[in-house]
């Protein structure tokens, strides 16, 4: 894989704070490549993030970057997008950040269909605080706050977003970074609220406790489980059991909120 454009990285801020084996760097690199691929001007791109391991990505990217409060990244981004609709906003969140404390903002950003590109790094765990279960932790998996395995059922994040009105939903994973880059790139080109769920590994706070092995084993399992949308259409229910759909799950056209707003006031 070719080198990342140094212009888009704050190389002086490296090394990053993430643990050995963490998938956040892979997803961040895919995001940077997708921004390159989209051909945006550097000054038009804004990275917004919440709180948690994944949200620290903003600090390493050489754009205008906004590291907000826990769960509120999409609400900050909504204000900024409405004030400056010409800017291209990428919103990086973790699974807890986006779907627990930020769940309300997530469904309402989807409902408005505001042109924000949400990239959710889903490692199924709260990593920064040391391994608590999130709304995306699969039932039965262990966490410090679910020592016997969580009894709760997880959200299907993309279906949640679709139900709330999101017009683009895709899933990729850290084991297939090239595909992930393409998915983020397609999300960027989509007008409206887009959601890219990037499955990622947390060997330290999740893998170790659940005996999933190290980063390599976790990535291998991620890759083995992933089935593209195209391939899945040829498989039956039994074959799809324990598989994870990857690719663009849905993409539909609908009026975009900031554009509709400015049109309604005669400024578009």
């Amino acid at each position: 894989m070719e080198q990342l454009t140094q212009d888009f990285l704050r190389t002086k801020k490296l090394p990053h704070i993430w643990c050995p084996g963490c998938g956040n760097g892979i997803v961040t690199a895919a995001l940077v490549r997708a921004i390159e691929r989209a051909g945006y001007n550097q000054q038009d791109v804004v990275i917004v993030s919440g709180i948690g391991c994944s949200s620290r990505a903003a600090g390493y990217l050489n754009f205008n970057t906004l590291h907000t409060t826990h769960g509120r990244a999409l609400a900050f981004a909504t204000g900024l997008k409405m004030a400056r609709p010409e800017l291209k906003l990428f919103v990086i969140m973790g699974d807890g950040d986006c779907s627990a404390i930020g769940g309300n903002h997530f469904i309402h950003a989807a409902r408005r269909n505001i042109d924000l590109n949400a990239v959710i790094i889903n490692n199924h765990i709260y990593g920064m605080t040391g391994g608590q279960h999130s709304p995306l932790t699969p039932t039965g998996m262990k966490a410090t706050t679910a020592p016997g395995g969580t009894l709760e059922r997880p959200f299907d994040l993309l279906e949640l977003a679709r139900g709330a009105g999101a017009t683009f939903g895709a899933r990729g994973n850290a084991a297939q970074p090239r595909q992930l880059e393409q998915l983020i790139s397609r999300a960027a080109n989509h007008k409206g609220f887009s959601v890219v769920e990037a499955l990622s590994q947390c060997p330290i706070a999740y893998g170790r406790r659940n005996k999933l092995g190290g980063a390599v084993e976790m990535l291998r399992e991620m890759k083995d489980k992933a089935v593209s949308v195209e391939k899945a259409s040829t498989m039956d229910v039994d074959e799809l059991k324990d598989k994870t759909l990857s690719g663009v799950i849905y993409s539909v056209d609908a009026p975009e909120f900031s554009e509709e707003y400015y049109r309604s006031i005669g400024k578009a």
């Binding site: 509120r72 609400a75 900050f76």
Partner: peptide
């Protein structure tokens, strides 16, 4: 821009976001 947000927390966040945009 007037926007009715989903809650008070989001309202405060949106205001800060718009200020960073220069409004």
């Amino acid at each position: 821009v007037f926007i009715q947000m989903e809650d008070e927390i989001a309202s405060m966040a949106a205001v800060i976001g718009a200020s960073i945009g220069g409004m």
